[in-house]
């Protein structure tokens, strides 16, 4: 495995384009699928997992899911390579941790990726930039159809697509929209949003999914119910709530710009100042400061930076990315120095 060629750029979804990209980072949909006549991952032995993996790989190739598909074998991958894939949202942390036969197929621009032998035999993901749930849904549905021509999925007419965990059964669908909500966080109004979202049976998660902490004011809104609703209904349920959160965040930003202009500008420029001059900086501090810069660029306070540069910095400054960039393992302290230097350079380039 050698996911080197992308070290200096993030995937398509971090372009910072697409509708409402000032607030919506990405639209992501995944399908959980399992092969019929095989035990689920937790109950299968190595040889069965190897068999499942080879069947799935073959199906992906035959299906011609997308251009330039690359398969990363996680059984033999180094810890840094695995973390690198986690940081790019191509695999989950759990998927990187196991040592059974497993891997991930990644398509061009990292829009389509398929985890093999994670919790389910297949976790198909389509990830796009900005608010594009409808397009993302159409895309993943086609990918799923194509793969299904070459393998038989475990399915029952009562329970739908059968998954290892009953929380995913039925459609096997998880729809997530990642939002950047610094103004709501700053003015302590997030609780209200989360409360409303929870009432609609939707979940709020941090940057890296289930159980992860909110970093850089990024939050993912996703569905919890996967059974008893059609895929389109689930997509619509999530879609329906997003415009209101976007409106709310924008309104608070505008109010801040009118009523607290100096404080807001100060916050943005201080963050910019810190990041353009710091000699050593942690990942956490980087995320917090970048969050303010991102809002500053969106509000036109900073006009010398491209949004894609800021978006990419969130990913490229993470531990595995820095180490791959340097081509060697870096201890924490050295990593913080490298991070600071990398950021200074990128900010100068704009």
């Amino acid at each position: 495995m050698n996911p080197e060629n992308n070290t200096s750029h993030a995937g398509e979804w971090m372009r910072g384009s697409g509708p409402d990209s000032d607030i919506v980072i990405s639209s992501r949909i995944r399908f959980a699928r399992n092969l019929a006549n095989h035990r689920f991952v937790t109950r299968a032995d190595r040889s069965e997992l190897a068999e499942v993996q080879s069947k799935v790989r073959e199906a992906i190739v035959k299906a011609g899911v997308c251009e330039d598909m690359v398969y990363y074998d996680l059984e033999t991958a180094t810890a840094v390579d695995k973390l690198y894939l986690v940081e790019r949202h191509l695999i989950s942390k759990e998927h990187g941790e196991g040592d059974e036969p497993r891997g991930v197929a990644v398509g061009k621009d990292e829009v389509v990726s398929i985890m093999v032998n994670e919790e389910d035999h297949l976790r198909i993901q389509v990830l796009k930039s900005g608010m594009q749930l409808t397009e993302t849904w159409a895309h993943i549905n086609e990918v799923d159809d194509r793969i299904e021509e070459h393998v038989e999925f475990a399915f029952s007419s009562k329970f739908g697509y059968l998954t290892a965990c009953p929380t995913n059964v039925g459609t096997g669908l998880r729809v997530s929209v990642m939002l950047h909500l610094p103004a709501l966080e700053w003015t302590k109004q997030l609780e209200k949003v989360f409360h409303a979202v929870a009432k609609l049976n939707l979940a709020v998660r941090g940057l890296y999914g289930e159980g992860t902490q909110a970093l850089g004011d990024f939050y993912q809104i996703s569905n919890q119910v996967t059974l008893g609703k059609t895929e389109t209904e689930i997509v619509q349920n999530v879609s329906a709530v997003i415009p209101q959160i976007i409106q709310y965040e924008r309104k608070v930003r505008e109010t801040l710009l009118v009523e607290n202009k100096q404080t807001l500008e100060d916050r943005v420029w201080r963050a910019f100042g810190m990041l353009s001059t710091a000699r050593t900086i942690t990942s956490q501090e980087t995320m917090d400061l970048l969050s303010n810069i991102r809002m500053g660029v969106n509000l036109g306070i900073i006009d010398t930076l491209e949004m894609s540069t800021v978006n990419e910095l969130f990913i490229l400054t993470q531990p595995a990315h820095l180490q791959k960039l340097k081509g060697r393992t870096l201890p924490n302290t050295e990593r913080d120095v490298e991070r600071a230097s990398f950021i200074r350079q990128r900010l100068e380039e704009g």
Partner: peptide, 9 residues
């Protein structure tokens, strides 16, 4: 899920 019947794909 408040349901035990698949209605999707």
């Amino acid at each position: 899920h408040r349901s035990s019947q698949h209605v999707g794909k």
